[in-house]
């Protein structure tokens, strides 16, 4: 392929020449967060997938993911930056054409293996030998779906969102139609925000994407899900906490008037955008109260709120919750339901 160096060079599959930008802008690390290394990166690095990845579906998904990351920046006011970004977008498009074409991919892989001094077949063999354990995702808190478990199948990615077409459909006014995806990278499962503006919290830390480990707890505005190994034997029913439901009985309208919980979930109630259960009235503190399982009981705890938390009419700092209890919090009256 013969293209002008200032425009399309980075696009050709066999280009190992280094680009010499007039200004030092490394669009690969700046916009795709690729680790430092050779520039331009090889196609598998570019797509942030495993070396010689043989799954067309995973390749195409990675193409879209990387494209989504860089595309918002194509309108950069600086013409030079814009051109660098265009180069990277061309590069991603080239990765798609090369890796989707079996003949071109074989040629490319062979060249790359030689350059990296790796035996491709041996490499792939050792990869497939190590079978990853099997995992599942359980919805443990939220307005619906609580208790549902979804098994993760190798090489199949899953989607989470409000759309009925999503693998895990999570109805809520606070969620996007496509909120997050979970897919496999190398031997790991990775959860990713569908777009950068969405909020995702994994084990109390806000992030855009996260390699998951068994036991990780993920908050997707209003829902909490648990990532874990598929239990070998079926668990004894109600070995843990009885499922708890909190229902807004009266008060200003809220996106989700219902919150269901099962252990090990705990729910933060407050006005805050990242609160698992957001109640938006003005007398509600940002972090107002918390409901959690202490191993024996569901506990309600006031988080030093401005207007206090009341249980059955009495101001409380901490109390055990029972079936049909009534919580008052700001302008809201909340009913407690405990299923046996």
């Amino acid at each position: 392929m013969s293209n002008r160096p200032d425009n399309e060079d980075s696009g050709s599959a066999d280009s190992v020449k280094k680009l010499e930008p007039e200004k030092k802008i490394d669009a690969y690390s700046e916009y795709l967060q690729l680790a430092d290394g050779n520039r331009p990166p090889h196609l598998y690095q570019l797509l942030d997938i495993e070396l010689f990845c043989p799954h067309p579906e995973r390749i195409n998904q990675a193409v879209r993911r990387q494209f989504r990351k860089i595309k918002p920046y194509e309108e950069n006011p600086d013409r030079q930056v814009r051109e660098r970004i265009q180069d990277v977008m061309t590069h991603i498009a080239t990765a798609k054409t090369v890796l989707n074409n079996p003949i071109q991919k074989a040629e490319y892989d062979e060249r790359l293996a030689k350059a990296l001094k790796i035996d491709r077949d041996e490499y792939l063999l050792t990869r497939t030998a190590a079978r990853p354990p099997e995992f599942c995702i359980t919805v443990i808190a939220g307005p619906a779906q609580v208790g549902s478990r979804f098994e993760l199948l190798p090489d199949k990615s899953i989607t989470l969102g409000t759309n009925a077409q999503a693998t895990i459909c999570l109805p809520s006014l606070r969620l996007a139609p496509l909120q997050a995806t979970v897919d496999q990278r190398d031997d790991n499962w990775v959860i990713r925000n569908a777009n950068e503006s969405l909020v995702m919290i994994v084990n109390d830390a806000r992030c855009q994407e996260q390699v998951l480990e068994s036991g990780d707890v993920i908050d997707l505005v209003g829902y909490r899900i648990l990532f874990s190994e598929i239990p070998k034997a079926p668990r004894k029913a109600n070995a843990n906490a009885p499922p708890l439901s909190l229902v807004v009985h009266s008060g200003p309208s809220v996106p989700d008037p219902l919150m269901n919980l099962m252990s090990p979930a705990s729910v933060l109630i407050g006005r805050c955008d990242t609160a698992l259960w957001q109640l938006a009235g003005k007398d509600v503190s940002l972090h107002h109260a918390r409901v959690e399982w202490d191993g024996a009981f569901w506990q309600l705890r006031d988080l030093h709120s401005d207007t206090g938390t009341f249980l059955n009419g009495e101001k409380v700092t901490q109390s055990i919750l029972g079936h049909r209890d009534v919580i008052n919090l700001g302008p809201y009256e909340i009913q407690v339901r405990l299923r046996k």
Binding site: R64, R68, M89, T90, A93, G161, Q165, L178
Partner: peptide
């Protein structure tokens, strides 16, 4: 077609991203 493969691929990526956004098959 070889010279312009990546341009066509870019329209393909946008098309697939659109279906992904709209959650349509």
């Amino acid at each position: 077609e070889q010279l312009t493969a990546d341009l066509i691929a870019r329209t393909q990526i946008s098309t697939e991203m659109l279906l992904e956004d709209a959650m349509l098959g």
